[in-house]
């Protein structure tokens, strides 16, 4: 199992479009993926779950991946957060 913390960099936070992008990317993996914000834990492969996080700019999220491709998961998430979900 790997856990890593990320900070939301894009101005608008993770609204519908980035959430959809995240789900599209994470859905491909076999690992179990969870996203944590404070005491809220949601399924990383569920758009409704991710939107429930209401992660605004500056929010800190922990991604937890558990499975055969967990390292890849973190890499993909890293790229998406780094690039601000390609919104800029």
């Amino acid at each position: 199992m790997i856990e890593k913390e990320f900070t939301v960099k894009n101005k608008l936070g993770i609204h519908a479009r980035p959430a959809a992008l995240l789900v599209k990317n994470l859905g491909k993996f076999d690992s179990k993926i969870e996203i944590l914000r404070d005491d809220l834990i949601v399924d990383g492969k569920s758009i409704m779950g991710i939107m429930m996080l209401a992660a605004e700019n500056g929010a800190k999220l922990v991604i937890r991946a558990d499975g055969p491709d967990e390292i890849e998961v973190i890499k993909v998430v890293e790229e998406l957060f780094e690039k601000g979900f390609y919104e800029e």
């Binding site: 479009r17 959809a20 949601v42």
Partner: peptide, 16 residues
Amino acid sequence: KEIFDVQIMILEDKSV
């Protein structure tokens, strides 16, 4: 088109 893609994702949401 994105509007519809998001709609389909909401519809097919795994946890729901």
